[in-house]
């Protein structure tokens, strides 16, 4: 079985509107693609030292897929785009 894809949403804590929206859109995209068992969407705190030493300096919200930053400091608002991003990794 292939390794699970991890989509991390780096957000501020407590989450601001943009970070929350980005997370929701990604979760919905995964649901729509029906790949829940292969893709995991997680929220992480952009202020924790561990995350900072992993990704360096980021702006929230940031979306990283398998440790690679895909969106930096922008809200992910459209589901279509979220689906494209996830599909790209799955293929």
């Amino acid at each position: 079985m292939a390794k699970k894809v991890v989509v991390e949403v780096l957000g501020s804590e407590p989450p601001c509107y943009k970070c929350r929206k980005t997370y929701e859109v990604l979760v919905e995209a995964v649901k729509e693609l029906g790949v829940k068992d292969r893709v995991e969407v997680v929220k992480v705190n952009a202020m924790s030292p561990d995350i900072i030493s992993k990704y360096g300096l980021v702006i929230t919200p940031t979306v990283a897929v398998n440790g690679e930053i895909k969106i930096l400091g922008k809200m992910l608002g459209s589901k279509r785009k979220a689906i494209e991003i996830i599909k790209e990794v799955l293929d």
Binding site: C16, A46, M47, S53, L57, V58, I59, T60
Partner: peptide, 20 residues
């Protein structure tokens, strides 16, 4: 140029302190 909305300020600040 980086912070149009104030909610991103604190995380960037933390990033600068720890990793920047």
């Amino acid at each position: 140029l980086l912070t149009v909305c104030s909610c991103v300020m604190v995380p960037v600040f933390a990033g600068l302190v720890y990793g920047g």
